[in-house]
């Protein structure tokens, strides 16, 4: 399950949680739980949203009529080097 999720993410496409849920034939809530687990394992990094949004926090604090946060009130993740690395 987690392996299939990582494989999907390694295709380099962008996904909504709902897309991933459809691809893996499960609920968005389980996808979220798995994304959080992958984040904990260092495969993903949260770049936007409640806690981890470095770019957004920086963006809104640092400047000038600063733009809106990328993901609005949602969260966004990207694969880390570890996440992109080759699995045996």
């Amino acid at each position: 399950m987690l392996e299939r999720l990582i494989d999907l993410l390694r295709t380099g496409r962008s996904y909504r949680i709902a897309d991933l849920a459809r691809e893996l034939d499960t609920t968005p809530a389980l996808i979220e739980a798995m994304l959080e687990r992958l984040e904990q394992m260092g495969y993903l990094r949260q770049i936007c949203g409640d806690a981890g949004g470095w770019a957004c926090r920086r963006g809104c604090a640092a400047c000038v009529p600063a733009g809106v946060c990328v993901a609005g009130s949602g969260r966004a993740w990207v694969l880390t080097e570890k996440g992109m690395g080759d699995r045996q």
């Binding site: 962008s14 770019a55 920086r58 963006g59 000038v64 009529p65 733009g67 990207v78």
Partner: peptide, 29 residues
Amino acid sequence: HPMGLHGKSFLPLFLGFGCNVPAVLGTRV
């Protein structure tokens, strides 16, 4: 995507619509 700018590159660029400064700083992701 057709530009070859995926995920990570896109995010800072989107911030740029507000201000280019966080866009440049945001490339740290």
